[in-house]
Simulated assay, not measured.
Amino acid sequence: MQRLIMWFQQHIRNGTLSPALDLALVPFAFAYGVGGRFRSYLYRLGFLKTRSLSCPVISVGNLTVGGTGKTPLVIALAQWLHNQGKRVGVVSRGYGRNDEKQILLVSDGKKILLDSQKAGDEPILIATRCPGIPVIVGTNRYAAGRQLLSQFLCDVLILDDGFQHLALKRDANLLLVDEESRFGNGYLLPRGPLREPSIGIERATALIVTRASSTKNSVIAQLCTSASLEMPIAISNFFLAGFVNLRTGELLSPEALSGKRCIAFCGIANPNSFSSMLEGAGVTIHEFLSFSDHWRYTSEDLQTIWNSTEGCSPKLVITTEKDAVKICHRLPASLEVVAARMELEWKEGQESLEEHLMYAVNQG
């Protein structure tokens, strides 16, 4: 089933579905769109309630499924707010965990309390990268937020992947758009990658363009014309900050693996961005193994990866930090396994975005 989902996700993202399958998905996409609009009307008319928490909420989300860089942005915002002296908490759904009905504390800010199977890979990564910040998971983000606030004093909560979660009021609603993939083929799920029509951009209080190679490009012009002129628009990209040795925890420089051959693997929504980043760092990829987003690695999967290193000397395996949290306790002694650490950098609009966020936190 995982491999069928992976195949389907790749074709949806690349727009390579066969004409017959594309046609067959039209009624399902139509029904999905009708259901989404009806749900929005119910919230707008008050039949479904939007509830507030006792502290400001900053939501980070997108209009498409996966791959826009929400997790690196959540990490960057949490670290920035923490450095500004704010007491920060993070609320996430915890996609892909064993029991998504439970509300579970992932980290108390001092210690990570769960593994990726119980918490989900992204919450574990956020907790790992954000010491001092409690992280909780729950499908009901309002209930999860209340539980977190009952245990910790927080000045602000960051809602991970919350743009469509209309049940919780937010004081800042950040919408991410990937400069490379944008809105895909423009169709709703399951015919395309859109979770809702692009008109949903109107709910955003700020736009963040990710993976932008330049501050002058067409997607930014499109967003400026479709969004409120009063809305901050920030331009960002991701850069390789280094490689984490999964056995020792040592952070190697971005240049440390230049000229080396490796096996690379990942289970993320945008695998091409990962392989391109490695090539940009001067790493020669002997073999690249791509899995579906949030992939749960079986023993057979890992054995296939480890066996692929036979043509490499030294035997080097590189993955993402998101994947690393799922395999870090299952490493063979004979291999060097590292995770690429990606961080966010601002190209334009950082100051206006930070002013927007601080206003939301202080006025919320």
Rank of each mutant, 00 (worst) to 15 (best):
R195C: 00
D178V: 07
T225R: 13
V219T: 15
K216D: 15
E196M: 05
P193F: 02
T225V: 12
F183V: 04
E196Y: 01
D155P: 13
G192R: 10
L189V: 05
R170L: 03
P197W: 12
P193A: 09
L188Y: 05
S226F: 05
G186Q: 13
E180V: 14
L207Y: 04
L168H: 00
L188V: 04
T210Q: 01
L157G: 03
R211V: 01
L223C: 01
R203Q: 04
V219K: 04
T215N: 11
L188R: 07
T215L: 07
L194V: 09
G162Y: 01
R211F: 11
A167H: 07
L175H: 05
T210Y: 03
L159C: 10
G192D: 15
D171H: 02
G200E: 04
N217M: 11
T215S: 13
A172D: 10
Y187E: 09
P190T: 07
R191P: 12
T210I: 06
E179Y: 05
R170N: 02
V219W: 00
E196T: 08
D155C: 13
V156P: 11
L153N: 15
N217V: 03
S198I: 14
A204L: 00
P190R: 04
S198Y: 07
V209Y: 03
C224P: 03
D171T: 05
L207I: 15
L166K: 12
L175A: 07
S218C: 10
L176P: 06
R170C: 02
N185A: 03
G162I: 00
A206N: 04
A221V: 12
N217Y: 06
I158E: 11
Y187V: 04
N217R: 10
L168E: 05
L207P: 00
R170I: 03
L168K: 01
L157W: 08
R191N: 00
T205H: 01
H165R: 07
E202Q: 14
T225W: 01
L166V: 01
Q164P: 09
A172Q: 04
P193G: 00
R170P: 03
R195M: 12
F152M: 10
L174W: 00
E180H: 12
F183T: 01
V177P: 04
I201M: 15
L153Y: 09
R170G: 02
L194C: 07
D160Y: 02
H165E: 09
